[in-house]
Amino acid sequence: MHNKNPIETEQQEWRKLQLQKRLKTWLTISSPVFLLLIWQLSSMSGLIDARFFPPPTAILSTFYELLTNGELFQHINISLFRIFAGFLLGVIPGIIVGLCMGLYAPIRHFISPVIMALMPIPTLALLPIILIIFGIGEVSKIVTIAGSVFFPVVINTVAGVISIESIYLDVAKNYGANKKDFFLKIALPGSLPVMLEGIQMGQAIALLTIVAAEMMGAQSGIGYLIWTSYSAFLLKEMFVGLILISFFGYIFSLLLRALQRKLLPWR
């Protein structure tokens, strides 16, 4: 019986993997292209009303105009600043509180009722109170985003710490690990898989929150662009804002997945 050369077998496996990667890439690209093509043809043929759903080519032309006159950069810059500042303000305390609640049962029992009571309340429902406390400036918008990000990060971090097998905690205690070691060498890496899922969820919520917050009390930003364009029936400008939010959501998701692969290569 003829045995295959191991090198040939390895090359065949490599080519198979490359083909699978190219297929995944093609499928990933083809779905939005297909959707845009259907949208373009439907708008041009009158199947959908072009006044309410302008063709993607018209939206692209409007995007270019807003880009060249500098207006779009202003909205993008301020929105990204608010998103990143609010995201960090929500994630960092969320991780710290989640680790404390996961490691220490008394802290968990003490804080859990407050977390469970506040979590179902949409952050935007608390926006009037946030505006009263922090005013209508940048701080209120950042705090609004931070509040919406905080809860999923806390809940997932607690779940990640609790899911750590007790044998690791017992070994650490037997070797005299201090509180810093428990946090940085056991709880933090052990909870990372579940924690990163919470951070991923928080990223999506941050984008939803910034749009709504800028619609209600802002003079700039992507949400402000969407709302004012809708109010003036400038629907091409409105769609530019909507597509930008979708684009940034996709990019942030890719970045977080890349970070997850870097921190958790075994997954």
Rank of each mutant, 00 (worst) to 15 (best):
S220L: 14
F182G: 04
I243V: 14
I222A: 04
A213E: 12
L196K: 02
I167V: 11
I222Y: 07
T228L: 07
F248P: 09
I245P: 11
V171H: 07
S191G: 02
L184K: 10
E214N: 11
A177R: 09
L184Y: 09
F182Q: 13
V211C: 07
A218K: 08
G190R: 15
S229F: 01
K180P: 01
S220E: 11
F183I: 15
A218Y: 02
G202F: 00
A172I: 13
E214R: 11
L225G: 05
L207Q: 07
L234F: 01
Y224R: 12
L188I: 07
Q203G: 06
V171M: 14
Y168F: 15
A218T: 14
K180M: 08
K236W: 00
L188W: 10
E214Y: 03
Y250P: 02
V211A: 13
I245R: 08
D181W: 03
V211R: 15
L192N: 00
M201R: 12
L192W: 00
I245T: 14
V211P: 12
Y250G: 04
K180I: 08
Q219F: 00
G198C: 06
Q203N: 12
K185G: 00
I222W: 06
D181N: 09
E197P: 00
G217T: 12
L225Y: 09
V240M: 09
G190F: 00
I243F: 15
G249I: 02
E237D: 06
A206V: 10
I164Q: 02
T228N: 08
S163Q: 09
S229T: 06
G223H: 10
V240N: 14
N178F: 01
I245Q: 13
I199Q: 01
F247M: 14
S163D: 10
L244R: 06
M195T: 05
L244S: 04
D170H: 13
Q203F: 03
T209P: 07
L188Y: 01
F183Q: 12
I162D: 05
I222H: 06
G160E: 03
L234N: 11
D170T: 13
Y168W: 04
M238L: 10
L244Q: 03
V171N: 13
A204R: 13
K185H: 08
D181Q: 15
E165F: 00
